[in-house]
C-alpha cells in the first residue's frame, strides 16, 4: 500500500513508533520482573585489585584461598586463576546454600565456568570477579579455564566438589578443604 498523502505517512510512522516503544517497554518490564521476582541479574561487581600485588593482599593470600565460612554462616570461595592453574586445584562447597565465588587473576585474562551450573565469568587482571550462586547437584564438577590464557591453557582446570549440606564440615577456622584433590 503506497502512501498517498503526508497524513498517511505520518500515520504509518506513528504505528511503528508505538510498536517499537511497546517492544522496548515489554523487554524492560521482563528485565524488571526477572530482577525483582526471580532475582536474576547480571553479576555486577566493580571491584579493583592491583594484579602485581594479589599475592601480597590479605584476602588472596595463599592461606586464605578456598572455601571459608564466616561468622554469619556465609560461604565464600576464593580462587586465584593464574597461568596455568587454579589455586586451590579443588574447592569444596555445600549444596543448596548460597555460595559466593570470588576470583582474581594476577597475570592475564582467564575465564571460568562450572559445568552444569550458571557459574560463568571472565577473570580480568585488575578486577575481582564475583558470582553468587546455589549449587544444586552434588558431586565433582569440572571447572576449566575457558578463556585462552597461554600455551598451558588446555591443562588448566580444577574441581568444584559439591557435597550435601550435612557432609559440609568446615574446620574451627571456618575453612573447608578438599580431602583428596
Amino acid at each position: 500500500m503506497a502512501a498517498r498523502t503526508e497524513h498517511e505517512v505520518l500515520a504509518t510512522e506513528l504505528r511503528w513508533t508505538i510498536a517499537v516503544v511497546a517492544s522496548v517497554a515489554l523487554i524492560s518490564l521482563a528485565i524488571l520482573w526477572a530482577g525483582l521476582v526471580h532475582f536474576i541479574n547480571p553479576p555486577s561487581n566493580l571491584e579493583t585489585i592491583d594484579p602485581t600485588k594479589v599475592h601480597l593482599s590479605p584476602e588472596f593470600t595463599e592461606a586464605n584461598l578456598g572455601t571459608r565460612v564466616d561468622e554469619g554462616g556465609r560461604v565464600t570461595t576464593r580462587i586465584v586463576t593464574a597461568q596455568f592453574a587454579f589455586i586451590p586445584p579443588c574447592v569444596v562447597v555445600p549444596a543448596d546454600e548460597p555460595v559466593t565465588l570470588r576470583l582474581v587473576s594476577p597475570d592475564v585474562i582467564h575465564g571460568v565456568l562450572v559445568t552444569g551450573t550458571n557459574v560463568n565469568t571472565m577473570v580480568v587482571p585488575g578486577y575481582v570477579s564475583q558470582v553468587h550462586t546455589v549449587f544444586q547437584k552434588t558431586g565433582d564438577l569440572l571447572m576449566p579455564c575457558h578463556e585462552y590464557c597461554g600455551i598451558g591453557h588446555s591443562q588448566m582446570w580444577s574441581t568444584v566438589r559439591v557435597v550435601p549440606k550435612a557432609e559440609f564440615k568446615p574446620g574451627p577456622d571456618g575453612r573447608a578443604l578438599c580431602e583428596k584433590p
Binding site: 530482577g35 532475582f39 561487581n45 571491584e47 593470600t61 559466593t100 575481582v128
Partner: peptide
C-alpha cells in the same frame, strides 16, 4: 564494590605472602 542484590563477603584473614 558488590552486588545490590547480595551482601558483600568480608575477609578478615591476615596477609601471609609466600
Amino acid at each position: 564494590p558488590g552486588s545490590p542484590a547480595a551482601r558483600q563477603p568480608v575477609s578478615t584473614a591476615p596477609a601471609a605472602p609466600v
